[in-house]
Nucleic acid binder design. Structure first.
Lengths: 329, 329
DNA sequence: CTGAAAGCGCTTACAG
DNA sequence: CTGAAAGCGCTTACAG
């Protein structure tokens, strides 16, 4: 492999000068610069990033930690992150926790050892060990999706999104609204969205029938199963609407409802959250909330870059959303 | 940051010994090893990967080049790659070409400069500059999806998949089969799939009506538009079936057909390729080909690792597929 | 079983 | 405007 020394020799200068020419740091005469650049061009020389990073403590790499590599949400966010980062010459080092909390911590430390310049975590839970680790590695850090105390966080407005959806159903005259949530281990999706639903029900003096509450695990299948058991549990007192906290679970529920001959939205209205691709093309098209995940990714990247460049910035940022009204209600 | 020197000092040994203990290379007595490990534990020391990689020329990082970050196919493949790689302690450095051929080449060189141990390219085209570059960087390299001459390639069996689909339609009695393809710039998707379709038509003495041939660009919208113009162009001589070379285009076409009041499959049958998530939940569910993208990713990672470990392996591997018969035919 | 020394390929004060 | 030298944090022959 050609190194800076080879270039220096070929150009008859010191490697100091080559380095300066390459990085536009310090003075170097036009002739020399041209001579160097020509040789760089010819040889196809590329500076070793390991050496560079060892020396400068900067790698031009941002670590991204995902809960799952193959969900639309993750993909969109990463896409946004990458769009901004690539423009600034940064690359993404990707890791996937497979929803394992320990891996979250392992990867933070691993990324540190790989000298990433910063880390973006798509967070699915909040716990002390995690926050502890983040503090320890002392790297520019941003969490998306959950508010981590003391950590720069970019969060969706889960409360209002969920409240809007519930209110919308109520205003359409629904009083018996079933709900499929997820584990409270995930504060944003599990806890906040459910709280907003319950708050709105209460505000309108509607009682929540606990047999109409299910807990899924984000999968389509769990939506299907939860719908099934809700319908079984509440017997003759059927809900007239379903609020599932993710599109995938909503779609699973719709599958079951359609199988059982329910008309959507005639017999039961369905709403989800996430604006998945599928939500638009399923029949009937699903009413949902668009969280603009790609924009979230972009914003995340920008915030992290600011932090890296030592700009003073706030700790918490809230994102906006949009309710997409479609045929399922 | 704690370095190997700090550990050495704390443990009262040389850094040589620490290195040996950490890497299980060469002898080191039990006492010393334990002493070292304890300190490593306490300090949370992690060796600098930059220094390591500078010295050893190995980084534990694999570069992955994607045509688009946000397609199901890409995501599934990356997921498979990551599953195998993570187990072996490798990380993925992710790059997205946004379908720009120049970026493909730039990224290969960039990844080289970042000392990746190997590169996996989800290929969408074949050209000399690309092959040239791959040869130049002289790194373990694997292309997925296209056969690159002289480069280890893992390809889908586009010809037979496409032929099967066409035959299936013919055997169901269809004679006027419309076709939505993509640019021949993409040999596998654009050229091979179309060739198989034409070959099968010919084998069954069916003439291809050129006004029933469209060319989309992978997007749902292009499927919609192509279907529209096909229907317009062939006037009264309507097709009774449509073969779109990707699910997304098939779904776009279905949208248009449904809008226009066509019954699927009654008036016109539709098939796609890709086994997208949506294909299962759209109404009617879409007949398609499953390419097992995740398995492809796994296989790719395994092949690349073999190559890195200097195993002699073949240059070309063909993947299997499965036809999923559903309600759209 | 352990250590001193060289070297990987860069950048950056420092000196001229 | 240019260069010699030190040093980033590791590993690995070599010597003992």
């Amino acid at each position: 492999m050609t190194t800076i020394n080879d270039i220096a020799q070929l150009a008859n200068v010191s490697r100091t000068t080559v380095s300066r020419a390459l990085n536009n740091s310090g003075y170097v005469s036009e002739d020399v610069r041209k001579r160097i650049m020509k040789i760089v061009e010819e040889t196809g020389y590329m500076p070793s990033q390991s050496a560079k990073s060892l020396r400068t403590k900067r790698s031009g790499v941002i670590g991204v930690i995902l809960p799952r590599l193959s969900t639309e949400t993750s993909t969109r966010v990463v896409n946004g992150i990458n769009e901004v980062l690539a423009k600034e010459g940064f690359q993404i080092l990707l890791t996937d926790t497979e929803l394992d909390k320990n891996k979250e911590i392992d990867y933070i430390r691993l990324l540190k050892s790989r000298h990433v310049d910063g880390i973006i975590l798509l967070a699915t839970n909040v716990n002390d060990a995690l926050i502890q680790t983040i503090r320890q590695v002392d790297l520019p850090f941003l969490a998306i999706g959950q508010e981590l105390p003391g950590v720069m966080s970019l969060v969706y407005d889960d409360y209002h999104a969920s409240a809007d959806l519930t209110n919308m159903l109520i205003h359409k005259g629904h009083e018996k609204i079933a709900f499929i949530g997820v584990s409270p281990e995930d504060p944003s999706v599990g806890r906040v969205r459910e709280k907003a639903y319950r708050d709105m029900m209460q505000q309108h003096d509607l009682v929540v029938n606990e047999s109409m509450i299910g807990q899924g695990d984000f999968t389509i299948e769990s939506g299907y199963e939860q719908m099934k058991s809700i319908l079984k549990n509440c017997r003759e007192d059927k809900p007239t609407a379903l609020f599932a906290v993710t599109d995938r679970m909503a779609i699973g529920a719709m599958e079951y409802l359609k199988e059982q001959g329910y008309e959507i939205p005639g017999d039961i209205a369905v709403v989800g959250i996430g604006a998945s691709n599928m939500s638009k093309y399923i029949t009937p098209s699903l009413t949902t909330i668009d969280y603009f995940n790609k924009d979230a990714g972009k914003k995340a990247a920008k915030l992290l870059l600011s932090k890296i460049n030592d700009k003073k910035i706030d700790e918490k940022f809230e994102l906006t959303y949009r309710l997409i009204l479609r045929d399922s209600v």
